Amino acid sequence: MVTSNGTLGPLESAEQRDAVSQAMLVLLERLTPTERAVYVLREAFAYGHREIACVLDLSEANCRQLYRRAVQRIATSENRFPAAPEQQEELVTTFSGGPGG
């Protein structure tokens, strides 16, 4: 439920943090750092492949390939990398804008 000032209520806020945490864990366990960067820039921020290439100093074709691989790896149920709990917490905190989201 959204509160009167337009923010999420406690239950919804906790559910959102849990969903972000789970999504970030999947990214940590299945993608390389570069694949994660390309995927997040494309999916979360709607950057085009050309923009991503400029940000990451890669070729546009390489960004397209990294994105394609990331999508395929996320679709599988196989984890490639173990994610340490501290790393997961740090990533979720950073992505959600700091403590308290």
Rank of each mutant, 00 (worst) to 15 (best):
G48D: 13
A44P: 03
T34G: 02
E43S: 15
Y39D: 03
I52A: 06
Y47C: 00
G6Q: 08
G9D: 04
E51Q: 15
T32K: 07
R64D: 04
L28R: 05
S21T: 15
E15V: 12
Q16K: 13
D57S: 12
S21F: 04
E29G: 05
G9M: 01
E43M: 14
E12H: 12
E15C: 07
Q22Y: 06
A61W: 04
R50I: 01
C54Q: 13
V40K: 05
A23S: 12
A19M: 15
Q65A: 11
I52S: 05
L31A: 00
P10G: 06
R17N: 11
R36A: 05
E15H: 12
L25G: 09
L8P: 05
S21M: 06
L25T: 15
A46G: 02
V55H: 08
S21I: 04
V40E: 02
L8C: 05
H49L: 11
Q65W: 10
V40D: 00
G9C: 01
P33L: 01
S59L: 02
Q16W: 10
A37M: 06
T7R: 09
Q22F: 05
L31M: 00
F45P: 01
E29D: 02
R50N: 04
Q16F: 13
M24W: 04
D57K: 10
S4T: 11
R42H: 15
I52C: 07
S59K: 08
E29C: 06
P33T: 00
V26W: 06
A61L: 10
V26D: 11
V40S: 05
Q16Y: 12
L58G: 04
E43N: 14
E29R: 10
R42M: 06
E15L: 15
R64F: 03
E51H: 09
L58P: 04
V20Y: 04
D18M: 09
L28D: 03
L31I: 00
Y39F: 15
E12S: 12
Y39V: 02
V40Y: 01
L11R: 14
F45T: 00
V40C: 03
L41P: 01
A61S: 14
R64S: 11
Y47E: 01
L56C: 03
E51N: 09
T7M: 07
L8S: 05
L25Y: 07
V20E: 07
R64P: 02
Y39L: 10
L31C: 00
C63E: 03
R30P: 12
E43Q: 14
D57C: 08
L8Y: 13
A14K: 13
S13Y: 14
E15K: 13
L25D: 15
L41E: 03
R50F: 02
G48A: 10
T34H: 06
R42Y: 14
T32N: 07
P10I: 10
S13P: 03
A14E: 15
A23K: 11
Q16C: 09
A44C: 11
I52N: 08
V20K: 09
C54G: 11
L41T: 04
L56W: 04
L56G: 01
R30F: 04
A53W: 01
